[in-house]
């Protein structure tokens, strides 16, 4: 199962940079080889933010697998990100084994 993700940021703000770094780390450790990430700078591409109805930045949108989910913030709360992406369950099973 491939995760298609879209990360909305605003330029090079500290929030944006932290979100990029956190997402990279999570994807590499948790979703290695089964993710696609699209980075959208809202300041350059507000139209896409309109379509996805983004209010807050950074926002990570899980496009696939459905349903669509939004994870708001700089992704520094790793547990919440995993919960939001719904990859916590498999992760949980692995650690409990």
């Amino acid at each position: 199962m491939t995760y298609r993700l879209r990360l909305f940021i605003t330029g090079r703000t500290p929030h944006s940079i932290r979100a990029l770094e956190n997402l990279q780390e999570i994807c590499e450790t948790e979703l290695s080889g089964r993710y696609e990430v699209e980075i959208i700078d809202v300041l350059e591409n507000p139209a896409i933010a309109n379509v996805d109805k983004i209010l807050a930045t950074p926002t990570l949108v899980r496009k696939l697998p459905e349903p669509v989910r939004k994870i708001i913030g700089d992704l520094s709360d790793r547990e919440k990100v995993l919960l939001g992406l719904d990859i916590y369950n498999s992760d949980f099973e692995r650690t409990s084994n």
């Binding site: 703000t13 929030h15 913030g73 939001g84």
Partner: peptide, 13 residues
């Protein structure tokens, strides 16, 4: 729609 907050954010978007 399910929204999760995972860290600090602003409403720049």
């Amino acid at each position: 729609e399910i929204n999760v907050e995972a860290g600090s954010f602003d409403l720049t978007a």
